[in-house]
Design a protein around this nucleic acid. Structure first.
Length: 585
RNA sequence: GCGCCCGUAGCUCAGCUGGAUAGAGCGCCACCCUCCGGAGGUGGAAGUCAGGGGUUCGAAUCCCUUCGGGCGCGCCA
């Protein structure tokens, strides 16, 4: 609808320039907006105000000229010049009728666009270290990432969804040591657990499985394990302590057994994460292993290339990437003095690998606490001769949980965090998915568990789902009264929908395609969540004001047609957000 | 100290590529079904858009600055 209007204005401007009535250096961008007030029509453009100065004329006169030059359109009833020089457009009933017919004809495809132009996008989200179950912070990234991926697909992007598995590195070693120590405990050894280890119950579970299946295969006496290990905090350094334990594990178990425990622990946790996300309706096309980048030499190749280009220097036995040359605030280590590559090194390799797979755009969704990491990755891309703009990082702020008006405290290491699974159990998948995307991602969010759990009017999820279910209920009623909805007759009688509630609902429905484009371009699923609530409000208001199942056949069929179109929008929109659209509640 | 995010109604938040009288939900007050699901609807009270400057036809929106809050500034990941 908006697009058609834009073309009308565009052709007027072209005509005016061709005839010499208007002299401009370049064609202005035409911005057409929905009006806030119905008395201003359906759409308005400020194009005359924007161009007036350059055209050396006053805005109202220019607006008049544009209106007079516009080609006739059956979509428009009339136009008016308002205020300082806005052009207001009043759309015809036929234009709205076309939208309703389109919705039913296109069904679940309605609202999709090609604005993404088939661009190949790699979206990476969650990518939590497989060292423990997902918590509610990951949940927000998951819900946001999945919904944004859906939006981009609906807008004509080719989206590949990926989870980067950090299966290499020190965190995994700490996990391995943690599991092994719990296992030794189950073997009857008295070991004091490191303050820096992973303390959750899930570690016990993995250890118990290990103990059941392998019995005392990995058993070593506690005093031998602790021999020569630096003291833990508070007397010593907790980092040195845990590193000492890792070294002991490696030595006593040997690389092969160490690797077995490592892999078992990771398999268990990663499997749990996959299940968790799948149950949450968050899907991936690929789970990408960090270790594979080490094993196939990609990381080494990247470092060599940077060395050749002179972007790497050695200092204090470590290799540093000169990221300050590319806008970062300090240089970054890629290989530590102990020879280990940093996470950053493999991350450069990972992003180069993404580009190597032919993706034109990389969208990473990170927790806001990683924001300082963005410049260095961009710097690395620049140093590698790539366009840093190809990497788009979307930051997701923390979500604080509130229960009974009290903030729920969380800490990963101590194991006293709220897991995503617990959240799902408490409030349900639909409420969790919806609440997570109800707020702009870069906004700190207060997640009210009591509200999300409540199955009442104050909960916006149910408000929307109820609107959808209500329409189904009307259809059931229709059947019970042994009436059949004649869609063709409805389509022919849309002109009978003259009530203000009907007009409002049609306007809301016609906004959907514009809304989807906007939400996709700005990576803002919350726009869709808010829109659906507005649409639900229109539906409920209409429902209260008028009857759909009326005697007059033409009117009945056209009203059912209208609410069927609304139903389709609810179904389409909720699906993009990962929320179910129940037929009855 | 430096960097990023944020500050809008009692609470939680939309609105921010400048546009007409600043919106929604919750809460509060008063109402609405002989009728398709009341998990609904109608009306009302409620604002120095944190403060101060600037840019212009026009600023919640852009720029500067002050104040307040969150996060980050490792040879951790």
């Amino acid at each position: 609808m908006k697009q058609q209007l834009k073309e009308v204005v565009e052709s007027a401007l072209i005509e005016l320039r061709k005839s010499g009535a208007l002299q401009l250096e370049h064609a202005p961008q035409i911005l057409i907006e929905r009006t806030r007030d119905q008395s201003h029509g359906d759409f308005a453009t400020n194009v005359a105000l924007v161009m007036a100065k350059e055209a050396h004329t006053n805005p109202r006169e220019l607006a008049q000229l544009i209106v007079e030059t516009m080609p006739p359109s059956d979509q428009l009833v009339r136009t008016e010049i308002a205020g300082p020089g806005f052009i207001n457009f009043f759309m015809s009933d036929a234009a709205y009728g076309d939208v309703i017919r389109d919705v039913l004809r296109q069904g679940e495809l309605f609202g999709r666009s090609q604005i993404g132009g088939g661009e190949k996008v790699l979206m990476e989200y969650v990518s939590a270290n497989p060292t423990g179950p997902l918590h509610v912070g990951h949940g927000r990234g998951a819900a946001y990432g999945a919904a944004t991926a859906n939006l981009l697909r609906a807008a004509g992007y080719q989206v590949h969804r990926e989870y980067y598995v950090n299966d290499a590195g020190r965190q995994m070693d700490i996990l391995t040591a943690s599991v092994w120590l719990r296992y030794l405990d189950l073997c009857g050894e008295e070991v004091t657990f490191p303050s820096n280890g992973y303390q959750g119950d899930y570690i016990w579970d993995i250890a118990a499985t290990l103990h059941r299946e392998r019995q005392d295969m990995y058993h070593h006496p506690a005093d031998l394990v602790m021999d020569g290990v630096p003291a833990d905090a508070p007397d010593g350094d907790k980092e040195e302590h845990i590193d000492g334990l890792i070294a002991q594990a490696r030595q006593l178990l040997g690389e092969e057994q160490y690797r077995q425990i490592h892999d078992e622990a990771m398999k268990a946790i990663l499997g749990d994460i996959r299940d968790d996300l799948a149950e949450f309706g968050v899907e991936y096309d690929e789970w990408f292993s960090e270790r594979s980048l080490m094993d196939d030499g990609t990381v080494n190749k990247v470092i060599e290339r940077l060395q050749k280009s002179g972007d790497i220097y050695e200092q204090n036995g470590a290799l540093w990437f000169r990221s300050t040359n590319y806008g970062d605030e300090k240089d970054r280590v890629v290989v530590r003095d102990n020879g280990l590559k940093t996470y950053f090194a493999s991350d450069i390799a990972y992003h180069m690998n993404k580009l190597g797979r032919g993706f034109e755009r990389m969208i990473d969704i990170w927790g806001a606490d990683h924001h300082g990491y963005v410049p260095r990755v961009r710097a690395a891309l620049a140093a590698m001769g790539e366009q840093p703009e190809q990497l788009e990082v979307l930051l997701v702020q923390f979500a604080s949980l509130y229960r009974g008006g009290q903030k729920v405290q969380m800490s990963t290491r101590s194991g006293s965090f709220v897991t995503l699974r617990e959240l799902r159990d408490e409030v349900g998948i639909d409420a969790a998915r919806f609440f997570y995307v109800l707020r702009k991602s870069e906004q700190h969010m207060d997640f009210d568990l009591d509200l999300a759990r409540s199955q009442s009017s104050e909960n916006p999820v149910y408000y929307i789902q109820y609107a959808h279910a209500r329409i189904h209920s009307v259809m059931r009623q229709l059947k019970e009264k042994e009436m059949v909805w004649n869609q063709r007759e409805g389509a022919e009688n849309l002109h009978l929908l003259v009530e203000s509630h009907e007009k409002s609902l049609m306007v809301a429905i016609s906004r959907y395609p514009e809304l989807l484009e906007s939400a996709a371009l700005q990576r803002e699923p919350h726009q869709l969540a808010h829109y659906l609530r507005d649409l639900a409000h229109e539906l409920h208001t209409y429902y209260n004001a008028h009857h759909f199942i009326v005697e007059d056949q033409g009117l009945r069929n056209s009203r059912i047609m209208l609410i069927s179109a609304a139903r389709q929008i609810f179904a389409n929109g909720l699906a993009l957000l990962g929320v179910s659209a129940p037929e009855e509640m």
